[in-house]
Design a protein around this nucleic acid. Structure first.
Lengths: 335, 335
DNA sequence: CTGTTAGCGCTTTCAA
DNA sequence: TTGAAAGCGCTAACAG
């Protein structure tokens, strides 16, 4: 605690101390919009330093009608994928001078709406939402908003990792490994990316003439526990079980792997697995997970650009995902 | 996008529409400090509804000199433990009407300082910091601040999970399993909790008369990769390797487990492992990790209370950790 | 190049 | 119970 004075030091304290007007202080702080003589600038800078001046962001926000902050709403930051995304957004935003307001919707649709409402009221300059509901209309007022993994609507900005193509890639890869009964451990209905991934799996399996594998499907939350429980259901009956599984997220796959271990099902020998997300989780599990990797940095950059750079054009940006092979599909032996 | 009007609707629009003064609108919005007649209140509420009024948080913050927001600075949100903490803080803060400003310091000490500075400038009502530097003095102005896992200083508020006791518990448990050469995979020097855990390990190992095990120690970042690489170094020489390891975090332990698999070292048979944090990661790894669990919810609550409830008392709150046994120490067979 | 000043939307004191 | 109005700290238009 540096000083114990009563009031924060304001711009007018600095002006007085540097014997200039408040306008000049403002010009110095913001590097414009008017030029300031070198000597004056230095005097002001010195005064700011000695007084320990710190601009008041609320006043600035009120005046400018913008908070220089972006909001991010995710279903659960403790999910590795959302965590990685939050990190990427936070770091990029900070480098661009923006603060990050984080809203965790705790996988609750009402809470999501409340979080959005709160962030909009805080005049964020942009809002990035990973919604639990693919279609609900949010009231975001005039706040530039971009959705991730959301069903396309003409008047909304959306970043769309190519879930469908990713799912196809995964299933096709499993087919190349000669798998005959490729099931799916799906995400929750309407959950971000979940339905597209499910559709991609279904279409590809059907096209491969393995329509009877279509019964090997279970929905689960995007959590380890969800994956574990769905995995148990999927592997319950040894006589009638899938020989491969496309899993809708890395965290679920972690749960599935545990279920497989407990059931004595070997991965990839008895059960080949490919998951979705491609977080660090995938590289360190046993077996290491072959996964459809989402380009987190690219997504973060695109989302930020959508709300900050092109605030009012409803961009629909597709982003490519890619298959990263490890051991769980049968490609690599250990390591 | 509900309306396309030019300006946001303000309190004075509502006042006009409801044929009252702006003061009354304020009383209604804030439920005080003056009473409002029932009929009037309802008229105001109706006007707010029809106009789609949303209070301007910046103006409020300027007037009140407080943002109704808390800041949280963590080294890396994508680390499961910090992610879980961020989630807990976010949810509790939101329920109390506060927004969460998240700063990821990206494991960089300068960035940490910059993040803190930014948050302080934004008039957060409280600041929770997990610092990379145990001793550096931060300039937080008059902002109530609480540190996690920081070396105690009399004038600072600190929440201190009992790292030392946790480390002792872990090592003692390993001793009970009859382990003879208990090494340590440590966190980075000065990293949150790292040195206390190291000390607890060292003291306990020494007290057990196993001083020669003291050479089995490697520092690493709090990441999977860090744990993996340190693990390789620790297990490099089969003739001279630890038979147990206390690991400073769950994520590092995940990396270590991979290193052990690759080296053909069986856990727990050849190498018993206990990690620290007790996140969900620990329960789903192979082997499932026995871990010293930190009470994340309790920590989040204590941190919030420290800055919001007792802003100016430098609380030093110890919080207990507990041993959760799973398979990696040798306690349980699979599952 | 520098100074003066209005006003952003809100809370709250003071007066009615 | 309600209204009028000052002022939070800042920016920028306008004047010099």
């Amino acid at each position: 605690m540096t000083d114990t004075g009563k009031r924060e030091v304001t711009r007018s304290d600095v002006a007085k101390h540097a014997r200039v007007s408040t306008a000049v202080v403002s010009y110095v702080v913001n590097n414009g919009p008017r030029p300031v003589a070198k000597a004056t600038r230095e005097r002001v800078l010195a005064s700011m330093e000695t007084l320990g001046y710190r601009p008041n962001a609320a006043a600035r926000a009120l005046r400018l009608q913008r908070a220089t902050a972006v909001g991010l709403v995710v279903p659960d930051v403790s999910n590795t994928y959302f965590g990685a995304l939050a990190r990427a957004v936070s770091n990029r935003a900070f480098d661009a001078g923006y603060a990050l307001l984080l809203g965790d919707s705790d996988n609750d649709i009402d809470r999501e709406a409340a979080q959005i409402d709160s962030l909009v009221g805080r005049q964020v300059d942009g809002l990035i939402v990973i919604s639990l509901d693919p279609t609900a209309t949010m009231d975001v007022g005039r706040t530039p908003t971009v959705y991730l993994d959301r069903r396309t609507a003409a008047d909304q900005a959306v970043i769309l990792p190519d879930n469908y193509a990713g799912a196809r890639m995964a299933v096709e890869h499993l087919l190349q490994h000669g798998r005959q009964r490729i099931g799916h451990l799906a995400g929750p209905e309407g959950g971000p990316g979940a339905d597209e991934r499910l559709q991609g799996w279904e279409d590809t399996v059907r096209a491969a003439g393995q329509a009877d594998a279509l019964s090997f499907v279970e929905r689960a939350e995007f959590t380890r526990r969800g994956g574990y429980e769905a995995g148990r259901r999927l592997l319950k009956n040894p006589d009638r079980a899938p020989d491969a599984l496309f899993v809708s997220s890395d965290v679920q796959a972690l749960g599935l792997l545990r279920a497989a271990r407990e059931a004595g099902v070997r991965v990839p020998e008895d059960l080949a697995v490919i998951s979705f997300d491609g977080t660090e989780d995938a590289a360190y599990s046993d077996s290491p997970l072959t996964s459809i990797e989402q380009p987190v940095e690219e997504i973060a950059a695109a989302a930020l650009a959508a709300v900050l750079t092109d605030p009012f054009v409803p961009v629909h940006e597709r982003v490519d995902v890619r298959l990263v092979t490890r051991a769980s599909c049968g490609c690599h032996s250990y390591a």
